[in-house]
Design a protein around this nucleic acid. Structure first.
Length: 197
DNA sequence: TCATTAATTTGGC
DNA sequence: GCCAAATTAATGA
């Protein structure tokens, strides 16, 4: 847990449950709450002309767009549940008060944000590569960095090939063919269509 | 459960 | 790399 649940409750936090494809917030909404996942996972995505661009996936214990609580800007992405689970919501003002009154959570939030930003930089560099396998491996590393288990082949990529294609800017067919090559090179494994890295 | 839709995969150009 | 067609999986009534 990024921040202790009891502490969040003391600052007006309350829990809500969600089911797959439930919308937590939508692109353009004004942030009013700090969200922290208790269980389940959520994707942050932007949709343009029917094409989905997934920016990030958040798992249990992590916060969702916490930085947007600190500036006056609408959400640049939507948050949509990809599993069932529950989360805790804290009104924005109370959340900021919590951070100013408690040192440890403030540090944790900063570290979490820094970590995410770091991986985002690397992701963008890989994605600029002209080699399809570099782009795909970059995504794999990025998504795996968002999860807990870091041992090889243990991470099941929660993306369809179509989503992988839209994130990397590659064609679906290219993704399929490149992923197969990468399997032959033992970079990843495929078990009934799922990618393990 | 069945019907419909979406995703995946292959092959031709 | 692009497009079309066949196969398979996911979704919802």
């Amino acid at each position: 847990m990024l921040i202790n649940i009891e502490l969040l409750s003391m600052y007006g936090g309350f829990t809500e449950t969600f089911s797959p494809s439930d919308i937590i917030f939508e692109e353009g909404d004004i942030p009013e709450f700090y969200y922290q996942l208790i269980t389940g996972s959520v994707k942050l995505s932007h949709t343009e002309e029917g094409k989905e661009l997934i920016q990030s996936i958040l798992n249990k214990g992590q916060s969702v767009c916490e930085l947007l609580c600190m500036i006056e800007k609408p959400y640049p992405v939507s948050a949509i549940a990809i599993s069932s689970g529950d989360l805790i919501k804290v009104p924005k003002a109370k959340f900021l008060k919590l951070l100013s009154e408690h040192h440890q959570p403030a540090v944790a939030v900063r570290q979490f944000a820094a970590e995410r930003l770091y991986h985002k930089f690397i992701l963008m560099q890989n994605n600029a590569s002209k080699y399809s396998h570099v782009r795909i491996e970059g995504i794999l590393k990025y998504f795996k960095s968002l999860s807990e288990d870091q041992s090889p082949y243990s991470y099941e990529l929660p993306l369809t090939r179509k989503q992988l294609a839209s994130i990397t800017g590659l064609r679906i067919e290219t993704v399929i063919r490149t992923v197969k090559k990468m399997e032959a090179e033992k970079v990843l494994k495929i078990k009934n269509r799922k990618i393990y890295f």
